[in-house]
Nucleic acid binder design. Structure first.
Lengths: 194, 194
DNA sequence: TTCATCCCTTGACATTTATCAATTGCTTTC
DNA sequence: GAAAGCAATTGATAAATGTCAAGGGATGAA
């Protein structure tokens, strides 16, 4: 399963065979079955994680026990709770598998070591962080500006790979609307297209 | 006005006098009057900007000409359009001054130079980016999970310095609600406290 | 001072979205 | 293969929020 990560890396930066082996030596693969937790509220998150296969979600639970989905991750996406990683505090989030998944884990310490020792890797990480930030700015924009229908269409447009892969109720939660509203919105959109 | 930035830097990292002078030599100060643009939709943004004094907002305009406020910035905050900076594309946003302001500007090229030549500076920048990302994750969480009232209370709690400084209508826009709704929400909150 | 502007508030009403409940069709599990 | 859950749909209704319109108070300019 390391190959998935390897080809990801190769698509982004140039590494010698030694460097690649070195990174591999600091990585571990974790297999998760559907519904299995990768991180549970209260745990402290200590890794940088990369999804080699499968699909996961990050979510929080409110007072009433409702789930609010913060994000999804599929193959070739990074994953984790940066807040807990950075602060060392227990996480407020849960991460679990929506499908059977395989995750590559690198501890914070090892990750920092790699960043220091392989500057191109560090640059890649920074670039990813920049892009993540921009993506979340765009999500904020959508959340405060769009109607339920626009939110859904925007989502499908941006993440077609997810739209047909995760349950609708989770997409609804991700968009901040109820499953019922999403169901109706989809129905109407279909009618409009006709 | 450089002193503001200097003390900010000193609070974060240790710099020699030479380094500090060097950074200063690559910085320029721009004065803005209230309502003046720092960036206009369609411009390409090429700086990292730091607010020395005053208050600004970043916003977009939708099809109907409504403003959607993406963010605020006051003294000791960083500011800019990372998307345009990174992509080199024209910005989709406007940035203008809510109060008379003074902004320190460093071009992307010079900024990168500083990052390369002064590793602690680079670390600081990364740490800021991390924190910005976490902050935007939290804003997303609020946007999809909270009612109008909760959004407002959360905002006041997190940014008390802004709550009494920027017009309510802008706060409403930032929260993704109408000014009228915000006005009613505040009224009700006051009553509840009594 | 007076006028004009801007921002906030308030009311009446419309629209959107949420909530609750029932039904159906699928998976999953035993 | 039957039973038990889970997801999606649909309807009826409620609640939250938006829209439109009017008015008032502060602030700044002439």
């Amino acid at each position: 399963m390391y190959e998935v990560f390897q080809s990801y890396l190769n698509s982004k930066i140039k590494l010698s065979e030694d460097q690649s082996k070195y990174i591999q030596s600091l990585s571990t693969i974790k297999k998760l079955r559907k519904r299995q937790y990768l991180l549970q509220e209260g745990d402290i998150w200590k890794y940088n994680a990369f999804v080699c296969s499968g699909c996961l979600r990050t979510y929080s639970l409110d007072d009433k026990g409702y789930e609010h989905i913060i994000g999804f991750a599929i193959e070739n996406w990074w994953l984790g709770d940066r807040e807990s990683l950075l602060s060392g505090e227990p996480s407020r989030f849960n991460i679990d598998a929506i499908e059977d998944s395989q995750i590559l884990l690198i501890t914070k310490e090892n990750f920092d070591k790699i960043c220091q020792e392989i500057p191109p890797f560090n640059n890649m990480v920074n670039s990813i962080l920049q892009h993540s930030f921009i993506a979340s700015q765009n999500r904020i924009h959508a959340a405060i500006s769009y109607s339920a229908e626009e939110k859904y269409l925007n989502f499908v447009n941006k993440y077609p790979a997810l739209a047909n892969r995760v349950p609708q109720s989770m997409i609804a939660s991700y968009l901040g609307i109820t499953p019922e509203t999403l169901s109706r919105v989809r129905n109407q959109s279909v009618k409009k297209v006709k």
